[in-house]
Amino acid sequence: MTDIPTCPPTLKAIQHYLKIAQEHASRDPVVAYWCQLHALQSALGIDRKSDESKAFLVKMMDRLEVMKKEFKDNEAITNEVAAQAHLENYALKLFIWADSQDRASNFGKNVVKAFYTSGMLFDVLTTFGELSEEIQQNRKYAKWKAAYIHNCLKNGETPV
């Protein structure tokens, strides 16, 4: 699969999901597919009028249709219940790993990245409906922790 097309400036808000999709393209195509679908769906609500955005959205749609055919035997791509379970499991594993590192005072860029990515993947789960109370709390905590540890590292402080 080719690289994800560059998104126009008006769609900057979806860049994070596309980056996670690109990083998972070969590692976990299910995560990559749903991050792109979530990005596309969000983009439709942000800018579908500018020429740049329209061209980008059509390319993304083409790409997702090709992916869906390519992975027609993968239930976590063709079936939304299986997809939700796969993504929830993946995001939770990442979140629990980051939390365990945090509690063991192992602070590093990889812990920031894991908290951040899990927070973004909890966002992607909204594609399948409203999040449970627990997932909502995890999402809030993951995003806050990622920002907090990131700032501490940047300022040379030790996270508490």
Binding site: Q41, L44, R48, L57, V58, M61
Partner: peptide
């Protein structure tokens, strides 16, 4: 009439993208 034409065109394109996304999720 130019603006009406443009607005109709935009709305048709929007519908097409929405329909494609909906079909993609139902496939």
């Amino acid at each position: 009439t130019g603006s009406i034409g443009t607005s109709t065109q935009v709305s048709q394109e929007q519908d097409e993208l929405t329909q494609r996304l909906s079909r993609l999720r139902q496939m």
